[in-house]
């Protein structure tokens, strides 16, 4: 008896112009089960479902778009290879995001040598934004492109663990427990690394200010 896979069913439903109420989108678990049975096309549905989120995550850690694409590709391929190890006890999203964050961390560690160490390439706009902040901190705009670029450059100067912690804790505003689950680090280790990361970022800012104003 031929087995109708989810991907084929969806294609059939689209072809027949079936109303949305007649069929529901397959759950992650159903798609994973179908993939594990050998229906690779079901995995494509999973890729489509999660790729916007994974792209947004990868863009927090890599600046160049080709690097972002490489990270995302690696995350999905790792997920495909390790899919059998997902035990379906927790939501797939948790398992998958853990894998994504760890892959991004591996990327940061492997590109540690390439990270910017000197702050010589500040643009005129960035300098202006900083001058404005020094003159009157409350009036400096948060949505300024110069400020966004400045943040990226500062994050790029941090060590991999500091950058990961600052991103997860301060920018994405996740809890320490969540970070511990995502990174596989213990809660005390996350707290220690968060403390060190904030100090590292302050040192980096001090260096910039010293170079510019003193």
């Amino acid at each position: 008896m031929p087995i109708l896979s989810w991907s084929r069913f969806l294609a059939f439903a689209c072809l027949m112009d079936m109303p949305d109420c007649l069929w529901m989108e397959p759950s992650d678990t159903e798609l994973i089960a179908a993939t594990l049975k050998g229906d690779a096309a079901s995995f494509e549905v999973l890729v489509k479902r999660y790729q916007p989120r994974i792209f947004a995550t990868a863009r927090r850690y890599a600046r160049r778009e080709d690097e972002v694409e490489d990270i995302v590709q690696e995350i999905f391929i790792k997920a495909f290879r390790k899919l059998a190890s997902y035990r379906m006890e927790a939501p797939f999203e948790h398992w998958f995001m853990r894998l994504a964050v760890r892959t991004c961390y591996d990327f940061l560690r492997s590109h540690q040598r390439n990270r910017e160490t000197a702050f010589t390439d500040m643009t005129v706009n960035e300098t202006d934004w900083l001058d404005q902040f020094v003159a009157e901190p409350s009036t400096s705009r948060e949505n300024a492109a110069a400020a966004r670029e400045l943040v990226k450059k500062i994050l790029n100067q941090l060590s991999p663990s500091a950058r990961l912690i600052i991103t997860l804790l301060e920018i994405e505003e996740r809890s320490v427990k969540e970070i511990a689950a995502l990174t596989g680090w213990s809660v005390p280790l996350v707290k220690v690394r968060a403390f060190r990361a904030r100090a590292e970022m302050r040192k980096c800012l001090e260096r910039i200010i010293r170079a510019k104003y003193l």
Binding site: F43, E44, F55, R59, I77, P137, V151, I154, E170, R202
Partner: peptide, 29 residues
């Protein structure tokens, strides 16, 4: 510390795009 807070709030206010290149899933498959 104020500068650090300001820069972090800038980063929070500007979340990265979730745009996906055309047919990226085909490349993965």
């Amino acid at each position: 510390v104020e500068l650090q807070k300001k820069l972090l709030s800038v980063a929070r206010a500007n979340s990265p795009s979730d745009g996906v290149p055309y047919a990226f899933e085909k490349r993965i498959m």
